[in-house]
Nucleic acid binder design. Structure first.
Lengths: 147, 147
DNA sequence: ATATTTGCAAAGGCTTTGCAACCCC
DNA sequence: GGGGTTGCAAAGCCTTTGCAAATAT
């Protein structure tokens, strides 16, 4: 069967890593949640798993293409790849920090595949961030929000 | 005239900020250089400008659309917007960390403009990162590089 | 048995902040 | 003069690392 956890184990085994309790906990903490910060994840995993192990696990998952980090303005968040609807494309206001999600766009996706293929690159995921001013911040000629 | 420095001053003035010695130094340190890390920048500015001021200046410049940060895998680099050829689009290997630049692509650029416009967003710059495995890392069925 | 993985604790790095002194308009 | 800025020093994250104990194959 293709239970997410089994897929995880397969991916790990294929690369000579084992599915340990800590890794399972991290995986479950990621599953079914919106992209979360490292801090959220540490809290969600509870006292059972050490912070260092979570960092190590995320680093490993990321390299195996199980997890991806999304840049949200200055910070980043983590989520499982290929799960639910992705919001990898967003507009980020450099003034107020607002994040606006963009809908999936086939034209865009197709182009990205073409570009990666041209370099013989095997894409796992991607993310696009357009920075600028949101409607609200375009108006004020006033001073920017506090430093 | 439109000397870069004058443009800088205009942009600052327009938002009620002044062109101070520290800001000028940071601006000049950014000018004519490849995207650099915060650390590079601190070094390049020398002892004349405090680290904290550089951070504050970059934060300000970024919000004014003078500077942008490029995500390079896990790290980021800084560069002036609109200067020389941009490498905002790249492939990033999740295993070995290699960064491969993508050439500018008109189809892509046009699409981005369309998407931003749909949200009445005023784009300043953008960046795209496609993560996956580079040719070299696709080969080995072996264990990934050291943790 | 052997190699991998974890927890703990400490070190490291990067970034932010409070505040008094200083500079610009 | 008065608000905007800076330097300094210290505090605050966030992340990484060494190592012995625990665990997986």
């Amino acid at each position: 069967m293709s239970e997410p956890i089994e897929q995880l184990e397969q991916t790990l085994k294929k690369n000579s890593f084992s599915l340990t309790a800590a890794r399972r906990t991290v995986f479950l903490a990621l599953q079914g949640h919106e992209p979360q910060s490292m801090h959220d994840l540490v809290v969600r995993c509870g006292n059972g798993v050490d912070r260092a192990s979570i960092y190590r696990t995320i680093a490993l998952f990321e390299r195996l293409g199980i997890v991806q980090r999304l840049q949200m303005g200055w910070k980043y968040k983590l989520e499982l790849t290929g799960s639910f609807v992705h919001h990898h494309h967003h507009l980020s206001c450099v003034n107020c920090g607002k994040i606006i999600a963009l809908p999936e766009d086939d034209v865009l996706e197709a182009r990205l595949h073409t570009l990666a293929a041209a370099k013989r690159f095997q894409p796992q995921d991607h993310q696009l961030e357009i920075r600028g001013l949101c409607v609200d911040c375009q108006l004020g000629t006033s001073r920017l929000a506090s430093l």
